[in-house]
Design a protein around this nucleic acid. Structure first.
Lengths: 143, 143
DNA sequence: AACAATAATTAGCAAGGCTAATTAAATGCC
DNA sequence: GGCATTTAATTAGCCTTGCTAATTATTGTT
């Protein structure tokens, strides 16, 4: 049936556009000097505040041992620190340092500016279309 | 100026939506039993036809040694093969096997269906907005 | 007090990224 | 024609980031 085929085709094109877009901006992240897994985890604690290791692993969709090692690296680089949770001394609380927050925000700025440079080629109407689509996609993916 | 700030904000939201979307569909790729770098390289040779190792590395934005090892793995798994280019015997030509093409197409199908399942929650009008946005984004990112 | 469950870490493996160095073939230049 | 340079690919060796299994420390339960 036509409706389903159309949705499949849209999904296909949306998917490959997303790949293309991220591939483009990812190059900018190299300038931070922080690897992608570390940068992404740092982003969670900078914008979401302190979290346990398990929660951070879940947020990043990796297993706890993987996250433990990423946090090791963030601590080594002075971007985050571990505290032990005093209510439950098995658990740790991971939080960003000043330096970590600063580096993340600069990197984010760089990435966004870079992508914005491309979007600025488009008319206001086209930008509005993207705005609408972003809302629709977020709605579709919610839950 | 207001226009620039808006574009930055749009870039930010588009970027994080793209991350969210790809994270979601990526989980489906596990079902192919082929790792992400291999799957992505296989996709290039299935849809783009035979290429040299250097060209394939460039298409995938990795260095030649990295691609050499990925192709080793694809050959080991029977998904691709190397031929030597007879015009330039330093070079290899990499092409997909029947099995490689089949597995890739099945995986792509799976991913697309999965994403389409989310998009189908949206109205025809919302889907049309995404369609328009995909075109606009592709235009913006084109050279 | 003993036992089970939970949070994190350690150990060890594989995939996938890199640079530097090597090999083989093609090209360019007297 | 022969030698130097360039080019295509590979090999070697490193790092990061993913995993599972096993361990340690603490908490909760009975």
């Amino acid at each position: 049936m036509a409706r389903k085929a159309n949705t499949d085709e849209l999904a296909d094109r949306l998917h490959s556009t997303a790949i293309h877009l991220l591939r483009l901006v990812r190059a900018q992240d190299a300038a931070t000097g922080v690897g992608p897994a570390r940068l992404s985890a740092l982003s969670v604690i900078v914008f979401g505040g302190p979290v346990s290791l398990n929660d951070l692993a879940r947020a990043e969709q990796v297993r706890p041992p993987t996250m433990s090692r990423i946090v090791d690296a963030l601590e080594r680089e002075g971007l985050a620190r571990r505290r032990t949770n005093q209510q439950d001394r098995r658990a740790v609380v991971i939080e960003a340092t000043q330096k970590g927050a600063q580096i993340l925000k600069q990197g984010r700025q760089r990435r966004v500016k870079y992508l914005a440079g491309y979007l600025r080629r488009l008319s206001a109407a086209e930008q509005k279309q993207i705005e609408n689509a972003v809302q629709a996609i977020q709605k579709a993916l919610a839950r």
